[in-house]
């Protein structure tokens, strides 16, 4: 690859929209994926994740916007754009009557792997996906977890710079999920990966960037570090044996608000830059409040997700009404 290409994002989606019978399935979605990114694409069921992926992989045409894969426009030059992508759709596209080897060789040929490298590509993909022992087995006879692996092997066999996986761990048992996650993390070393899922811990475990889509629009796009910061919320809960009044707690510098909870507990809200934990402890010792619990509350990714997807829901609904 030359220098020009390394500076370009591998995947650039520009203001993608898709209308189905008047409703917008995807609305002005833009994002970029750079070399080495593992992008988690989150959203509730029916939010437009799969549709967006189908657009990026050239299976579905957007009503507006464009997709550039490694600088190549998907609509203008689908052949070259598609050769840079490996795609595992929601339902792995497997021919059940073929053996794993036959199927993977077919995929490799279809993706124009040169004849002399076929064997190598096959062995490599099987090794990566833990399929070395199943080459001669019929795909139809494999368990769901192994079929999923064949699906992933199919997506990486031609060594594409971009690998797009649509809900790769759905319907698998916990051990298989762990294996597949490990595999995806490994893929991130030398491919860019876009991973769609609605399972949140998966994203935290594998991805370095996250975006959330809801009702067809992106509602959040952040790095995993940025997400961690969002997850540190600005509240503390206290539990004390001889609690003072709310008014006393409000005097502590940095405390913006204090709520009284049952059983002598309080929740303190503070400005993100001024954590009053130390001050609380000092006062408690001085005034003998009997502080026995001090917990920084953390927001889980789930909270962020629920927050973004449910509130956005209302916003979108009211916006739609406004237009009408």
């Amino acid at each position: 690859m030359n220098d020009v290409n390394t500076s370009l994002p591998l995947v650039a989606a520009e203001r993608l929209s898709l209308a189905y019978d008047g409703t917008l399935a995807v609305h002005e979605v833009s994002f970029e994926v750079r070399r080495g990114d593992v992008l988690g694409f989150l959203g509730p069921n029916g939010a437009g994740k799969s549709t967006t992926m189908q657009i990026i992989t050239g299976n579905l045409a957007p009503s507006a916007g464009r997709v550039l894969i490694d600088g190549v426009d998907m609509l203008d030059d689908p052949k070259h754009a598609k050769s840079r992508i490996g795609y595992l759709p929601e339902h792995p596209p497997l021919y059940r009557e073929l053996t794993v080897d036959e199927y993977l060789l077919f995929c490799a040929r279809l993706n124009q792997v040169p004849k002399e490298r076929l064997r190598n590509a096959l062995d490599h993909a099987k090794l990566r996906c833990g399929l070395t022992a199943c080459g001669a087995r019929l795909i139809g006879n494999l368990s769901k977890g192994y079929q999923q692996r064949v699906g992933i092997a199919q997506a990486i066999i031609h060594g594409p710079p971009v690998v797009i996986l649509d809900e790769p761990t759905v319907g698998l048992d916990p051990i298989q999920i762990r294996d597949i996650r490990g595999l995806i993390r490994e893929l991130g070393n030398d491919h860019s990966v876009i991973l769609s899922t609605h399972i949140l811990p998966e994203v935290q475990a594998i991805c370095n960037r996250v975006q959330i889509i809801n009702n067809g629009s992106l509602v959040m796009s952040d790095t995993i570090d940025g997400l961690r910061q969002r997850m540190q919320s600005s509240t503390l809960t206290l539990a004390m044996r001889q609690p003072p009044g709310v008014a006393t707690l409000l005097e502590i510098p940095g405390v913006l608000n204090a709520e009284s909870l049952p059983e002598g507990r309080f929740r303190l809200h503070y400005a993100p830059t001024q954590n009053p934990a130390e001050a609380v402890v000092e006062r408690s010792v001085a005034a003998r409040w009997g502080l026995y619990e001090l917990i920084p509350e953390r927001v889980s990714l789930e909270d962020i997700f629920v927050n973004l997807t449910t509130t956005e829901n209302e916003v979108v609904v009211s916006a739609a009404r406004g237009e009408a």
Binding site: T57, K79, P93, C107
Partner: peptide, 14 residues
């Protein structure tokens, strides 16, 4: 029906 057409549509073939 078996959703295998995606494989062909995603591959670099016209």
């Amino acid at each position: 029906r078996n959703q295998t057409l995606t494989l062909l549509f995603s591959a670099p073939v016209s």
